[in-house]
Amino acid sequence: MLRRLVHCALCWTLSMAGVAGLYILAGAEFLGLAQLIVYVGAVAILIVFAILLTQRRELLSIERLTAGSWVTGVAVAGLVAGCLWIGLAYTRGLGGAGGASGGPALETRELGELLMGRYVVAFEVAGLVLTVALIGAVILALPFEQPREASGRRADRPAAGEGWDARRQGGQGA
């Protein structure tokens, strides 16, 4: 089907946007919009850049699918669709009563109060882990001092790399 990895990444972005739509339909407006910002706005771009920065070309195209993998793919897709269908059919209230027209399960304010109150430790720890990851990424991207005996070619590049360091921080931090 899709042999270019970039196409796959963009399709993945589309499906993430679809998931966000499902969240919004289910009444979780805040979660859906946050999903859009995080996945469509940041993670998709991160993936796409990871693909673009990959040097080895043979990784970038996928071998043509064989008949067997077609069958497997269709079967999995059918299974997922069936599960979704069953789930939707036996869930009450999504079709209008408790969905977008009804009140949300949790107001944004309550969500914030829960995150800042009851679950504050988990929230802060997650934030700390992400910050550590961010700092680690910055350190990895920093041009480090070469030992004397090594050729000085790499050490005199810091100025040129700056803009891209900043962008990488953006990809990780957003």
Binding site: T13, L33, L36, V40, I45, E107
Partner: peptide, 25 residues
């Protein structure tokens, strides 16, 4: 007037990055 109007504004705006990439690539 969704309850998260401002969030909606920034959420849909984030698609512009994908569009720029699509156009450029």
């Amino acid at each position: 007037d969704p309850r998260c109007g401002l969030l909606f504004f920034f959420a849909v705006g984030s698609a512009a990055e994908v569009a720029a990439f699509m156009a450029g690539w």
